[in-house]
Protein backbone atom coordinates (compact mmCIF):
# COMPACT_ATOMS: atom_id res chain seq x y z
CA UNK A 1 0.00 0.00 0.00
CA UNK A 2 2.99 2.24 -0.25
CA UNK A 3 2.92 2.98 -3.91
CA UNK A 4 1.77 6.31 -5.15
CA UNK A 5 0.22 5.07 -8.33
CA UNK A 6 -2.31 3.19 -6.25
CA UNK A 7 -4.21 6.35 -5.71
CA UNK A 8 -5.64 7.55 -8.88
CA UNK A 9 -7.59 10.71 -8.34
CA UNK A 10 -10.62 10.96 -10.53
CA UNK A 11 -12.38 14.17 -11.35
CA UNK A 12 -11.34 17.61 -10.25
CA UNK A 13 -13.88 18.40 -7.58
CA UNK A 14 -12.81 20.99 -5.04
CA UNK A 15 -14.14 19.40 -1.89
CA UNK A 16 -12.40 16.37 -0.51
CA UNK A 17 -15.66 14.56 0.14
CA UNK A 18 -16.59 14.38 -3.52
CA UNK A 19 -13.24 13.10 -4.72
CA UNK A 20 -13.46 9.41 -5.28
CA UNK A 21 -10.20 7.59 -5.49
CA UNK A 22 -10.15 4.43 -7.48
CA UNK A 23 -7.84 1.70 -6.41
CA UNK A 24 -5.74 0.72 -9.38
CA UNK A 25 -5.66 -2.95 -10.31
CA UNK A 26 -2.10 -3.01 -9.00
CA UNK A 27 -2.80 -4.33 -5.53
CA UNK A 28 -5.60 -6.46 -4.20
CA UNK A 29 -6.56 -8.06 -0.90
CA UNK A 30 -4.05 -10.90 -1.28
CA UNK A 31 -1.27 -8.36 -1.76
CA UNK A 32 -2.30 -6.56 1.39
CA UNK A 33 -2.29 -9.81 3.39
CA UNK A 34 1.15 -10.75 2.06
CA UNK A 35 2.34 -7.27 2.91
CA UNK A 36 1.03 -7.58 6.49
CA UNK A 37 2.59 -11.03 6.93
CA UNK A 38 5.96 -9.77 5.74
CA UNK A 39 5.84 -6.62 7.83
CA UNK A 40 4.98 -8.56 10.98
CA UNK A 41 7.42 -11.37 10.07
CA UNK A 42 4.68 -13.92 10.49
CA UNK A 43 5.10 -17.60 9.70
CA UNK A 44 2.66 -18.28 6.89
CA UNK A 45 1.89 -21.71 8.34
CA UNK A 46 0.76 -20.20 11.60
CA UNK A 47 -1.09 -16.98 10.90
CA UNK A 48 -2.48 -15.25 14.00
CA UNK A 49 -5.79 -14.78 12.30
CA UNK A 50 -7.36 -12.46 14.89
CA UNK A 51 -4.47 -9.99 14.64
CA UNK A 52 -4.30 -10.09 10.89
CA UNK A 53 -8.06 -9.69 10.53
CA UNK A 54 -7.95 -6.66 12.78
CA UNK A 55 -5.16 -5.06 10.75
CA UNK A 56 -6.87 -5.91 7.49
CA UNK A 57 -10.09 -4.24 8.65
CA UNK A 58 -8.11 -1.19 9.76
CA UNK A 59 -6.73 -0.82 6.27
CA UNK A 60 -10.19 -1.26 4.83
CA UNK A 61 -11.50 1.48 7.11
CA UNK A 62 -8.58 3.70 6.11
CA UNK A 63 -9.41 3.17 2.47
CA UNK A 64 -13.03 4.08 3.13
CA UNK A 65 -11.98 7.19 5.05
CA UNK A 66 -9.85 8.19 2.07
CA UNK A 67 -12.86 7.68 -0.15
CA UNK A 68 -11.10 4.94 -2.02
CA UNK A 69 -13.59 2.97 -3.98
CA UNK A 70 -13.36 -0.41 -2.28
CA UNK A 71 -14.04 -3.13 -4.80
CA UNK A 72 -16.12 -6.17 -3.94
CA UNK A 73 -13.17 -8.54 -3.61
CA UNK A 74 -11.90 -6.55 -0.60
CA UNK A 75 -15.17 -7.15 1.23
CA UNK A 76 -15.19 -10.81 0.24
CA UNK A 77 -11.74 -11.21 1.80
CA UNK A 78 -12.88 -9.39 4.95
CA UNK A 79 -15.79 -11.82 5.24
CA UNK A 80 -13.45 -14.78 4.66
CA UNK A 81 -11.09 -13.62 7.41
CA UNK A 82 -13.90 -13.10 9.88
CA UNK A 83 -15.31 -16.51 9.03
CA UNK A 84 -11.92 -18.18 9.61
CA UNK A 85 -11.53 -16.28 12.85
CA UNK A 86 -14.89 -17.48 14.15
CA UNK A 87 -14.15 -21.08 13.17
CA UNK A 88 -10.85 -20.90 15.00
CA UNK A 89 -12.75 -20.02 18.16
CA UNK A 90 -14.79 -23.19 18.01
CA UNK A 91 -13.42 -26.14 19.99
CA UNK A 92 -12.19 -28.99 17.79
CA UNK A 93 -14.86 -31.48 16.88
CA UNK A 94 -14.61 -34.22 19.53
CA UNK A 95 -16.36 -36.75 17.28
CA UNK A 96 -13.86 -36.32 14.44
CA UNK A 97 -11.50 -39.27 14.21
CA UNK A 98 -8.20 -37.44 14.12
CA UNK A 99 -7.55 -33.73 14.32
CA UNK A 100 -5.85 -33.37 10.96
CA UNK A 101 -3.91 -30.32 9.92
CA UNK A 102 -6.20 -30.07 6.92
CA UNK A 103 -9.03 -29.26 9.33
CA UNK A 104 -7.33 -25.95 10.00
CA UNK A 105 -9.72 -23.31 8.66
CA UNK A 106 -6.72 -21.27 7.52
CA UNK A 107 -5.45 -23.87 5.05
CA UNK A 108 -7.29 -22.67 1.95
CA UNK A 109 -6.22 -19.10 2.52
CA UNK A 110 -2.60 -20.12 3.06
CA UNK A 111 -2.52 -22.02 -0.23
CA UNK A 112 -4.15 -19.10 -1.99
CA UNK A 113 -1.50 -16.77 -0.57
CA UNK A 114 1.36 -19.08 -1.53
CA UNK A 115 -0.06 -19.46 -5.04
CA UNK A 116 -0.37 -15.70 -5.32
CA UNK A 117 3.20 -15.23 -4.12
CA UNK A 118 4.42 -17.69 -6.77
CA UNK A 119 2.86 -15.62 -9.52
CA UNK A 120 4.26 -12.44 -8.02
CA UNK A 121 7.70 -14.02 -8.17
CA UNK A 122 7.06 -15.17 -11.72
CA UNK A 123 6.10 -11.59 -12.61
CA UNK A 124 9.38 -10.43 -11.11
CA UNK A 125 11.22 -12.91 -13.32
CA UNK A 126 9.40 -11.55 -16.39
CA UNK A 127 10.34 -8.03 -15.30
CA UNK A 128 14.01 -8.98 -15.17
CA UNK A 129 13.85 -10.69 -18.55
CA UNK A 130 12.17 -7.67 -20.06
CA UNK A 131 14.93 -5.52 -18.63
CA UNK A 132 17.53 -7.66 -20.41
CA UNK A 133 15.56 -7.69 -23.67
CA UNK A 134 15.34 -3.92 -23.55
CA UNK A 135 19.12 -3.82 -23.55
CA UNK A 136 19.63 -5.68 -26.81
CA UNK A 137 19.07 -4.68 -30.41
CA UNK A 138 18.92 -6.58 -33.63
CA UNK A 139 19.00 -5.38 -37.20
CA UNK A 140 15.87 -3.29 -37.77
CA UNK A 141 13.11 -4.68 -39.94
CA UNK A 142 14.02 -3.73 -43.46
CA UNK A 143 11.56 -2.83 -46.14
CA UNK A 144 11.41 -5.74 -48.49
CA UNK A 145 10.67 -4.25 -51.87
CA UNK A 146 7.24 -5.10 -53.12
CA UNK A 147 7.29 -7.77 -55.73
CA UNK A 148 10.55 -9.18 -54.48
CA UNK A 149 8.65 -12.05 -53.06
CA UNK A 150 8.35 -14.46 -55.92
CA UNK A 151 4.68 -15.17 -55.77
CA UNK A 152 1.67 -14.93 -58.00
CA UNK A 153 -1.22 -12.65 -57.16
CA UNK A 154 -4.50 -14.48 -56.90
CA UNK A 155 -7.13 -13.68 -59.50
CA UNK A 156 -10.77 -13.46 -58.59
CA UNK A 157 -11.39 -16.62 -60.62
CA UNK A 158 -8.81 -18.60 -58.69
CA UNK A 159 -10.43 -17.42 -55.52
CA UNK A 160 -13.95 -18.33 -56.58
CA UNK A 161 -12.73 -21.68 -57.81
CA UNK A 162 -11.01 -22.37 -54.50
CA UNK A 163 -14.16 -21.44 -52.61
CA UNK A 164 -16.29 -23.51 -54.93
CA UNK A 165 -14.06 -26.54 -54.25
CA UNK A 166 -14.39 -26.01 -50.54
CA UNK A 167 -18.17 -25.88 -50.72
CA UNK A 168 -18.24 -29.00 -52.89
CA UNK A 169 -15.99 -30.86 -50.51
CA UNK A 170 -18.18 -29.77 -47.62
CA UNK A 171 -21.32 -30.99 -49.32
CA UNK A 172 -19.73 -34.31 -50.16
CA UNK A 173 -18.66 -34.84 -46.57
CA UNK A 174 -21.88 -33.90 -44.90
CA UNK A 175 -25.05 -35.63 -45.89
CA UNK A 176 -27.07 -33.59 -43.51
CA UNK A 177 -26.41 -30.07 -42.44
CA UNK A 178 -26.53 -29.39 -38.78
CA UNK A 179 -28.23 -26.17 -37.79
CA UNK A 180 -25.36 -24.81 -35.76
CA UNK A 181 -25.23 -21.28 -34.53
CA UNK A 182 -25.29 -18.34 -36.84
CA UNK A 183 -22.19 -16.23 -37.10
CA UNK A 184 -21.91 -12.66 -38.30
CA UNK A 185 -19.26 -11.31 -40.65
CA UNK A 186 -17.98 -9.04 -37.88
CA UNK A 187 -17.49 -11.99 -35.56
CA UNK A 188 -15.73 -13.91 -38.28
CA UNK A 189 -13.46 -10.96 -39.05
CA UNK A 190 -12.53 -10.75 -35.38
CA UNK A 191 -11.78 -14.47 -35.36
CA UNK A 192 -9.56 -14.25 -38.44
CA UNK A 193 -7.69 -11.29 -36.96
CA UNK A 194 -7.03 -13.36 -33.86
CA UNK A 195 -5.72 -16.25 -35.93
CA UNK A 196 -3.40 -13.88 -37.76
CA UNK A 197 -2.01 -12.67 -34.45
CA UNK A 198 -0.49 -16.10 -34.08
CA UNK A 199 0.27 -16.93 -37.71
CA UNK A 200 1.93 -14.67 -40.27
CA UNK A 201 0.38 -16.56 -43.10
CA UNK A 202 -2.10 -19.36 -43.49
CA UNK A 203 -3.47 -21.62 -46.18
CA UNK A 204 -6.81 -20.41 -47.57
CA UNK A 205 -8.61 -23.70 -47.00
CA UNK A 206 -7.53 -23.79 -43.35
CA UNK A 207 -10.02 -21.06 -42.56
CA UNK A 208 -12.86 -23.29 -43.64
CA UNK A 209 -11.65 -26.54 -42.14
CA UNK A 210 -14.00 -26.71 -39.20
CA UNK A 211 -17.05 -24.88 -40.43
CA UNK A 212 -20.23 -26.51 -39.18
CA UNK A 213 -22.49 -25.22 -41.95
CA UNK A 214 -22.58 -23.75 -45.43
CA UNK A 215 -23.66 -20.50 -43.86
CA UNK A 216 -20.35 -20.49 -41.96
CA UNK A 217 -18.41 -21.12 -45.17
CA UNK A 218 -20.02 -18.17 -46.88
CA UNK A 219 -19.57 -15.83 -43.93
CA UNK A 220 -15.91 -16.82 -43.68
CA UNK A 221 -15.42 -16.16 -47.37
CA UNK A 222 -17.06 -12.73 -47.13
CA UNK A 223 -15.01 -11.89 -44.03
CA UNK A 224 -11.80 -12.71 -45.92
CA UNK A 225 -12.86 -10.53 -48.85
CA UNK A 226 -13.60 -7.68 -46.46
CA UNK A 227 -10.14 -8.00 -44.88
CA UNK A 228 -8.54 -7.90 -48.32
CA UNK A 229 -10.48 -4.73 -49.06
CA UNK A 230 -9.24 -3.22 -45.78
CA UNK A 231 -5.66 -4.15 -46.79
CA UNK A 232 -5.26 -6.19 -43.64
CA UNK A 233 -4.47 -9.34 -45.57
CA UNK A 234 -3.42 -10.26 -49.09
CA UNK A 235 -3.66 -13.44 -51.05
CA UNK A 236 -0.92 -15.14 -53.02
CA UNK A 237 0.02 -18.39 -54.66
CA UNK A 238 3.53 -19.78 -54.97
CA UNK A 239 2.68 -20.54 -58.58
CA UNK A 240 -0.44 -20.36 -60.70
CA UNK A 241 -3.23 -22.79 -59.77
CA UNK A 242 -1.34 -23.64 -56.62
CA UNK A 243 -2.87 -23.51 -53.18
CA UNK A 244 -3.92 -20.00 -52.10
CA UNK A 245 -2.15 -18.50 -49.10
CA UNK A 246 -3.28 -15.64 -46.92
CA UNK A 247 -0.72 -13.28 -45.51
CA UNK A 248 -0.89 -10.40 -43.06
CA UNK A 249 -0.50 -6.80 -44.21
CA UNK A 250 -0.82 -5.33 -47.67
CA UNK A 251 0.93 -6.45 -50.74
Amino acid sequence: MDSNNLLDSQGESSTASTITIKLDGFEGPLDLLLHLLKREEIDIWNIPIARITEQYLEYLQLMKDLNINVAGEWLVMAATLIHIKSRMLLPPDPVAATPEASDDPRTDLVYQLLEHQKFKNAAQMLYTREEVENAVWSSPPREVLEGEKDVVAVSLFDLLKAFHDIVKRFEAQRALELGGEEVSIDEKIAEIRRLLLIHDSMVFSAFFARSPSKHHLIVTFLALLELVRLHEIWLYQLKSFDEIHISKGKR
Binding site: P29, L30, H116, E130
Partner: peptide, 30 residues
Protein backbone atom coordinates in the same frame (compact mmCIF):
# COMPACT_ATOMS: atom_id res chain seq x y z
CA UNK B 1 7.86 -1.32 -19.67
CA UNK B 2 4.85 -3.26 -18.54
CA UNK B 3 3.28 -2.42 -15.19
CA UNK B 4 3.52 -4.89 -12.33
CA UNK B 5 -0.22 -5.57 -12.66
CA UNK B 6 0.26 -6.47 -16.34
CA UNK B 7 3.27 -8.64 -15.56
CA UNK B 8 1.39 -10.52 -12.84
CA UNK B 9 -1.55 -11.11 -15.15
CA UNK B 10 0.85 -12.19 -17.88
CA UNK B 11 2.52 -14.63 -15.49
CA UNK B 12 -0.86 -16.20 -14.72
CA UNK B 13 -1.66 -16.51 -18.44
CA UNK B 14 1.79 -17.92 -19.23
CA UNK B 15 1.66 -20.61 -16.54
CA UNK B 16 -2.02 -21.47 -16.63
CA UNK B 17 -2.83 -21.22 -20.32
CA UNK B 18 -5.28 -21.66 -21.84
CA UNK B 19 -7.05 -19.67 -19.16
CA UNK B 20 -10.27 -17.66 -18.83
CA UNK B 21 -10.69 -14.22 -17.28
CA UNK B 22 -12.61 -15.74 -14.36
CA UNK B 23 -9.75 -18.15 -13.66
CA UNK B 24 -7.27 -15.26 -13.71
CA UNK B 25 -9.50 -13.42 -11.23
CA UNK B 26 -9.58 -16.44 -8.93
CA UNK B 27 -5.79 -16.69 -8.85
CA UNK B 28 -5.02 -13.00 -8.51
CA UNK B 29 -7.92 -12.24 -6.17
CA UNK B 30 -8.74 -9.08 -8.07
Amino acid sequence: KLSMASLETLAVVAYRQPVTLAEILAIRGK
